[in-house]
Design a protein around this nucleic acid. Structure first.
Length: 582
RNA sequence: GGGCCCCUAGCUCAAUUGGCAGAGCAGAGGACUUUUAAUCCUUUGGUUGUGGGUUCGAGUCCCACGGGGCCUACCA
């Protein structure tokens, strides 16, 4: 470990990796034996996996990469919490899906019918995005694990030790219990939250009707054998036979599941998490800051893993929320939140990675899909230039390196010829979406390149950004048809300019000639040559002439540079728009 | 009730285990035949929310206060 060296820049990744390694050495010994340092992430595929959720994956990814970089064996283990219950039907989904509430996400059908299940439908796009981002991880499905009985011993342990578990949980349970429902809500939000929690109680049937306190706080919850929902109330548990009897609140089924022989349920979340730490040997696992607050899952889990499983909680960092655009907080149950795939439509993979690595996890930030994108690319390009010089190595260039390559994917794709994003998007703005044409114009304005491929992946992202995210009022709209009124009302000068322009404009346009021609037309009209220096009169004429052209071409007084606009539209289109319809 | 984050130029924000307060945009000036939110150069702009403390040194660490925001308590 090259720590403490003056020359080695450090960042939050370095420190998190230090912690993970220290954790592993404390548990497995200085030489680690054959233990592979395990960095774990977890996510519930209950809806679109948005840019806030992405932080879970990337935080773990960067730390695992750093450990590997030091030559220590490490893995990124990801748990899909697809055995969690389906909680509510998101807006925009067929309300009849309410029927599935309480079933595991992996047992709810895909509303769009393109995947095996609800869970798979939301996993798939993220898996694709992670592949593009160069994130390689071992994935496991909690549904498979639970159904295979992998956790049977741990479940039996938890049930046997449920009094200890309850003690720990109770320690963090403050007052409330009643109180809350009778107290007058102080705000609409609070009222809504209350209503929500009451509704949840109703549907989950946890209010312990008729059940003893002991059974009401049971750490294991069975899914109903008949209807598959977790709307079960435990009615008895036999310590010797491990028979667990329950009644389903929804379908009224009364059944018995045996914890030693059947695999029909799961541990409650606050026990499930520490259980997995101990089973998988997790050395590092981040969580949203909400998981880190006192009484929440991490603090409770930390005690439980020690007391119940004799394990040690992984090193932890809490990360803050990632917003999009102007919004600060996203909810996965609300439709329309941007996902990693959305961001990758407009950002090169290393840039998206960079957004997540350059800030401390605790710092909240936004991924902006608006005008900030241009600046982001500019900053990135400047950083790339700086990073090329080893003498200037610092925390920023370290972030650049972390963003740019991974141990499994190598250097992630960037364009062979780097053209400012601003330029690509403004050319794309007026070229009706043809990559070939954009490439030609880009070449003409000084960015030599062999083919369209040399501009990718940036070109495609610039085209998408321009067409999907630039507001219409900021875009250039080329006229479909000539402006007959304006063309019919030309004064003498204007008529002369247009005629001379069209007479001299070739069918095949080149940038330099076109530039000379456009600036030269007003000179010709004053009896000068194309190459003569302009007089003040000509300069004024140029302004008027340019405005006329913008009026006729794009219905505005100003616009993109005319020579490039001409090349983008092509001679034929220009001719059409500058000639009165007959 | 508890926890966390933020407050830095007119605006949006950087400053990564304490080390010369910095960019972009906006503003001003200039150059390129120059109309353009597609060029380049120069330049203005600061008591880092307030008050204390630690330190040779604080935007950064500690305490208090003010303002803004997020999370949390039952359940997963």
């Amino acid at each position: 470990m090259a720590r403490g060296n003056q020359g080695e820049p450090t960042d939050w990744v370095t420190r998190a990796a230090d912690d993970a390694i220290r954790h592993a050495r404390d548990v497995y010994g200085e030489d680690l034996g054959d233990h592979v340092i395990t960095c774990a992430s977890g996510a519930s595929p209950s809806g679109p996996i948005h840019l806030g959720n992405l932080r879970e994956f990337l935080t773990v990814h960067f730390v695992a990469e750093e450990i590997k970089r030091r030559g220590i064996a490490a893995r990124h283990l990801h748990s899909w919490d697809d055995y969690d219950r389906f909680r509510k039907v998101p807006a925009g989904i067929d309300p009849s899906f309410a029927d599935h509430i309480g079933r595991p996400l992996s047992s709810v059908p895909d509303p769009w019918d393109c995947h095996q299940s609800w869970a798979d439908h939301f996993k798939a796009p993220l898996q694709a995005a992670l592949a593009e981002l160069g994130v390689a991880m071992e994935e496991m499905s909690q549904t498979e694990r639970y159904r295979a009985g992998t956790y049977r011993d741990q479940i039996l342990t938890a049930v046997r030790r449920r009094d200890d578990i309850e003690q720990v949980m109770a320690k963090y349970r403050t007052k409330q219990l009643e109180g809350a429902t009778s107290a007058a809500p102080e705000s609409p939000e609070e009222a809504a939250a209350l209503a929500d929690s009451v509704a949840n109680d109703d549907e989950s049937g946890l209010t312990g009707l008729g059940a003893t306190d002991d059974l009401a706080r049971f750490p294991f919850k069975p899914y109903c054998r008949e209807c598959g929902r977790d709307t079960t109330i435990i009615t008895s548990y036999d310590e010797d036979t491990t028979d667990l009897a329950y009644t389903c609140q929804v379908c009224a089924y009364q059944g018995v599941t045996n914890l030693t022989t059947d695999n029909e349920g799961k541990l409650v979340w606050k026990v499930d998490w520490p259980m997995r730490w101990s089973v998988e040997g997790v050395d590092f696992e981040p969580g949203g800051v909400d998981h880190a607050t006192p009484g929440s899952s991490y603090t409770v889990g930390k005690e439980l893993v020690k007391r119940v499983y004799g394990g040690r909680a992984p090193s932890f960092v809490g990360y803050s929320f990632v917003g999009a655009g102007g919004q600060v907080k996203m909810s996965s149950s609300r439709g329309g939140v941007p996902t990693a795939s959305d961001a990758l439509q407009i950002l090169e993979a290393p840039i998206l990675r960079w957004l997540y690595v350059r800030r401390q996890p605790k710092q909240a930030f936004n991924v902006d899909f608006g005008a900030e994108v241009v600046r982001l690319y500019d900053e990135w390009d400047a950083l790339a230039k700086k990073s090329a010089d080893p003498e200037r190595s610092d925390a920023q260039t370290l972030a650049f390196e972390r963003a740019s390559s991974t141990s499994s994917a190598g250097r992630l794709p960037t364009p062979a010829v780097v053209v400012p994003f601003r330029l690509l998007s403004s050319v794309a703005d007026v070229t009706a979406g043809s990559a070939e044409l954009i490439s030609t114009i880009i070449g003409n304005v000084g960015y030599e390149h062999a083919s369209v491929a040399d501009l990718e992946p940036r070109l495609g992202k610039a085209m998408t950004w321009t067409s999907e995210y630039v507001p219409t009022e900021d875009r250039t709209t080329v006229r479909e048809t000539p402006d007959a009124d304006r063309l019919g009302a030309l004064n003498e000068d204007e008529e002369l300019w247009l005629r001379q322009l069209l007479d001299r404009m070739p069918d095949d346009l080149h940038l330099d000639d076109t530039t000379a021609l456009i600036y030269g037309v007003p000179k010709l009209a004053r009896g000068l040559g194309l190459d003569d220096a302009p007089t003040d009169q000509v300069k004024q004429d140029q302004k008027d002439f340019f405005r006329l052209l913008y009026n006729l071409l794009v219905d505005a007084d100003r616009g993109p540079r005319l020579p490039t606009l001409f090349l983008a539209l092509g001679a034929e289109k220009i001719r059409t728009l500058l000639t009165p319809p007959s």
